[in-house]
Structures are given as structure tokens and as C-alpha cells.
Simulated assay, not measured.
Amino acid sequence: MDQNLDLSEDPATSEAPPQVDNLDALESEAIHIFREVAGEFDRPVILFSGGKDSTVLLHLALKAFRPAPVPFPLLHVDTGHNFEEVLRFRDELVSRHDLRLVVARVQDWIDDGRLTERPDGTRNPLQTQPLLEAIEQNRFDAVFGGGRRDEERARAKERVFSLRDSFGQWDPRRQRPELWNLYNGKHRAGEHMRVFPLSNWTELDVWRYIQREKIELASLYYAHRREVFERDGMWLTSGPWGGPREGEEVVEKTVRYRTVGDGSCTGAVESEAYTVDDVIAEVAASHLTERGATRADDRMSEAAMEDRKREGYF
């Protein structure tokens, strides 16, 4: 070895390695996943509810394929108990970006007898059959979802590419390793893959990304005045799903929603977070995930989410 070779760097002339921001890394990973699916599958679709996670998912898809349009449609499983603010936002976003929206309405399945209304009025558990039939009828072979591992213990078990069998069911024993972010999309006829580009994001990451990218959300994610009543420690609002019950007093409070879904089981939280900055500060100080704090359907049992996933739920 040449003893005169100086391997040290001159601090005056050497360039510091570029710093990769955490949000940049998460965005890059998600965009890579979108492009991987577009190249590997024939008929992908994005599950879109108008909520914050699916809105961020759509924003990433638009970025992944710009200036070309998003090369696959959106699919919304509409319980019929959605918040009006969310449905208006969904339709405005679809129109603005000239997207194709497929809607599977739970009410249609109830009307023709394929599903029966639950005694408690909650329709979230009724979404599975319309979802699976919409996937089968449209021959979707990859279904993007906005699920994140930090939301709930069953979702923490998910791979980014989550194989579902010909009945749409999830079997943890059939999931593939994803070492070095290598994704295996191989599947048999009739099977499909659920794909989760936001798997490694947290709720705080999502809100910081919304702040950075100036992403518009449905208005109910920010503090507003609303008539609510308390049930099981959550603030619910009345609507076509019913309520309040006898003894449940309606009061007006300043609230916001951390997550949106079926109005019968999605609660609001008292909040003065009127801006994105306010929400970020609030989320950073919270010790509960948004589902744990505001989703009654996840409180039915310790394994409620995992049971529904095995049946074909999101």
C-alpha cells in the first residue's frame, strides 16, 4: 500500500452526505410500492373512504405516476352511515383529479337480503361481503389500503404485500417474508393481494406529511362545534344510524374526529385543534391510537379486528 496515500478528506472541499428526511424516506418507500404493484399486477385498485389515510394514499399515487394519470380506479365500500362532510369531500376529490370511483353500497346488500341489519345498528362489520364481491366482480388482483401497523395489534402483523386466498381471507401462516423490501406478488387465479404503502407510517407521520404537502382533508378532522352524546366513553353524533338512546343527553361541544368511518361507532374527541399545527401538537401528546380512542367496533373483543381480517376485512 502506498504510504504516501492520504485517505483523509479535506473538510474544506469534501461534501457532506445528503441528509434524508424521515418523511422523504417514507414517501419514497410508498411511491416505490405503488410503482412495483403497477408493474406486477393487472388490475389494482385503491380503497378510498375520504379519510385522512386514504387521502394521503391518493396523494402518493398521484405523485408516483405524475404527469400521467393514476392508472387504476378507487373503490369505496359505503356503509350508508358515512358523514356527509366526508362523502362531499370524496366526490370533490374524484372530480378534481378525473378519477374513476367504484362504490359498493352496503345498503344494496341489505335491500336484497344478502345482508341483515345488526341489532346495534353498526354497519362496519357488514362491509366485508360487499368488499369481497366488488373485488371479485371487477377482477381486482391488488387492493391498496391505508392501514398502518401502529393502529392496532392485528394490523401490526401485516406484511406490505398481504396475500388473500380465493375467499378473500387472511391467513398469517401464508404471509411471505419481505427482507430488504423485496415484495413477492405471486398469487394463484382467484387470489389477490392487499397492499399497504403506509405500513411503516405513524399517525404523527401522516399529519406531518399532510402539513408538508398541504393536503386538503375533510373538514371534520379539525375542531368544530357539533351536537354529541356520550356512550361507552366516546362522543357520538346522531344520524341515520340512530341515537341517542334513552338517558343519553345531547350536548354541544367543540370536537374533531381522529378517524372517520361508520357514524354509529366512530366517536369524536373534545379538541381545540383548528389547524394542522394544532392537530400535530395534540397527536404528539396522545397516548392512544386513533382507533383505540374513537372506534367502538374495535372494542367488541380483544381479537375483533383480527377476526374480521380473517374473514376478508380490510
Rank of each mutant, 00 (worst) to 15 (best):
F41Y: 01
F83Q: 09
V250E: 06
R159D: 01
W109C: 11
R258I: 05
A61I: 05
H76C: 12
L74H: 07
N200V: 04
F41A: 07
G263D: 12
F161I: 06
G233H: 04
L26F: 00
G312I: 05
M1S: 10
Y183G: 06
V160M: 00
H187C: 05
R188E: 15
F161V: 09
G247A: 10
R139C: 03
D108Q: 11
G233P: 11
P67Y: 05
A273L: 12
V160T: 15
G261V: 08
E252V: 13
Y209Q: 10
V45G: 01
R90A: 07
F161G: 02
Q19S: 01
D112H: 14
G243C: 12
G261L: 08
A30G: 02
D262G: 13
V276S: 10
E117P: 14
E36A: 07
P197Y: 14
D141K: 01
P18Q: 06
V279N: 09
Y313V: 00
A64T: 03
V228S: 08
K214Q: 14
R231W: 09
A61D: 04
V56G: 02
S95Q: 15
L93Y: 05
R123F: 10
L75R: 05
K214P: 01
F167D: 11
R43T: 03
P17Y: 03
E152I: 03
E84A: 13
Q3W: 01
E290V: 08
R173S: 15
E191A: 06
D91A: 07
L62T: 02
V37D: 00
L182K: 11
E117A: 15
K309D: 07
M234Y: 03
T289L: 09
L131M: 15
H287I: 09
L179R: 12
V37S: 01
K157C: 05
V279I: 15
H224E: 11
G185R: 06
S271W: 08
R153Q: 10
D232C: 02
G147E: 11
T254L: 10
E36I: 00
F41I: 01
A61M: 04
A68H: 08
A16I: 00
R100P: 10
Y209W: 14
E252F: 02
A16G: 01
S166Q: 07
E306F: 14
R123S: 12
H97F: 14
G190P: 07
R173H: 12
H97T: 07
G121C: 13
N82G: 15
C265I: 04
S199V: 07
D6S: 01
E9L: 13
I210T: 12
D111L: 11
T289R: 10
I135G: 08
T116F: 04
V77L: 06
R226G: 06
L57N: 04
L5P: 00
V160Y: 01
A189L: 12
L131A: 10
I110K: 13
G312N: 04
Q137T: 10
R66D: 13
S28R: 02
V103F: 08
Q169P: 02
E227Y: 05
